[in-house]
Simulated scan of single mutants.
Amino acid sequence: MATESEGRVLLQGTGRALGGALLFASPIFMTMEVWQLGLVVPRYRLALLTLATVVLVLLLTRFFGATTAREGWRGIVTDAGIAVVMAAVAATLVLTALAVLSPLPEWRDALSVLAIELLPAAVGASYARGQLGRTARPSRVTGYADELLLMVAGAVVFSANIAPTEEVVLLAARTGPWHALALVGLSLALMHGFVYSVGFKGQEAPTGGVLRTFVVFTVVGYVLTLAVSAYLLWTFGRLDGTGAGAALTQCVVLALPGSLGPAAARLVL
């Protein structure tokens, strides 16, 4: 009976991982630029992206807690592996059904596209597997470093669905210095307001004063979002051949939606 119960829990968790991947990554599954970028982005950048995905999912699984019977790092690695595999399965099923991929005869191209699709899908699978079950464990956020990592994960989910699109480059080309400053101010206001002001469930109280909270959490979270934006845009080749000013403007444009991710992560977790 215990074995049957463990098997049922494993199957349910695997189903949640599949659902979480679809929930978080459906927009990027159906983004045409991703299908094209997967064929032209250098393979070493895709390999780095895949490695970063696996490391991020491992760290998030440590926060969420393993849902398998295994304890310690064995359970964490098992849960993270299931999340990554189900994210890949979700992407393969959707893109094959949409006639975007032919996994068997064109497996090299298929793997390149999947490497891009995997990032938000795997984060979503990890979150759904660990936190959306009926017996979800409390997240193990114990310090400032944990808060920062969760903000990075939130920025990744919100930015990865938009970073491959050409709209980021087009909007940045139309954005002047004053518009860019306005975007920075708007992003900071949204991040801070969502977590501390508007009464969402999970709202936090400022610790150590409003100014300290703004600098230590909101400003640092925005800087992390800019870093995530820069890495994703570099991975997809959007920063190649651009000057420093144009590259920074692209990061600021992408950080507007990306900045909602850290706020959402702190509210939810």
Rank of each mutant, 00 (worst) to 15 (best):
M30D: 08
V220R: 06
E71V: 15
D240M: 06
G208D: 05
G13K: 02
G245S: 12
A99T: 14
S126E: 10
R62M: 10
L60C: 10
T50A: 12
A125G: 04
A121T: 01
V210D: 15
L269Y: 12
I116Q: 04
A244L: 12
R140S: 10
Y196D: 05
V268S: 13
A21T: 02
W35N: 09
A121R: 00
Y127P: 06
G13M: 00
V41G: 06
E204K: 14
A97Y: 01
L149D: 05
L58P: 05
A163H: 02
M86F: 02
A172Y: 02
T175L: 03
W107R: 12
E33N: 13
Y231C: 15
A189F: 13
R8A: 11
G15I: 00
G209Y: 04
C251A: 06
L181Q: 10
E33Q: 10
V219R: 08
E4W: 07
G261F: 06
L51V: 08
T165Q: 12
L48V: 09
N161R: 04
Q12Y: 09
A145Y: 10
E204H: 15
D146P: 04
G237C: 02
T218H: 07
S112P: 07
A110F: 02
A25M: 04
W35R: 13
F158E: 09
S112E: 08
A173S: 10
G202I: 00
A172N: 05
L60M: 11
P257S: 05
A255G: 03
A17Q: 03
K201P: 14
V219D: 06
A80S: 08
E204C: 07
E204Y: 09
G75D: 02
A21N: 00
L260G: 13
T213N: 14
A17P: 03
A173V: 07
L48G: 08
A52M: 14
V123N: 04
V84L: 03
Y222N: 09
G185Q: 05
A182R: 03
A264L: 14
G13N: 04
V223W: 06
V9Q: 14
L190R: 07
L171M: 08
T53E: 04
V210K: 15
Q250K: 06
S197R: 15
G258M: 05
S102E: 14
W35D: 10
F63M: 06
L18D: 01
L170K: 09
A145T: 10
L149G: 11
L98D: 11
L170C: 05
L60D: 08
G20I: 01
V195A: 10
I76Q: 09
T218I: 08
R43A: 15
Y196F: 09
L18S: 00
L181N: 08
L149F: 13
F217N: 15
I162S: 03
F236A: 06
S187F: 01
V168R: 02
F63N: 03
M191A: 12
H192M: 08
T78D: 07
A88C: 10
F214T: 07
M191R: 07
S159T: 12
L93E: 03
T67M: 07
A247H: 03
P27L: 07
A128W: 03
P206R: 11
T207I: 15
M30L: 14
P257T: 07
A230Q: 11
R212C: 07
L232K: 10
V113Q: 03
E167R: 09
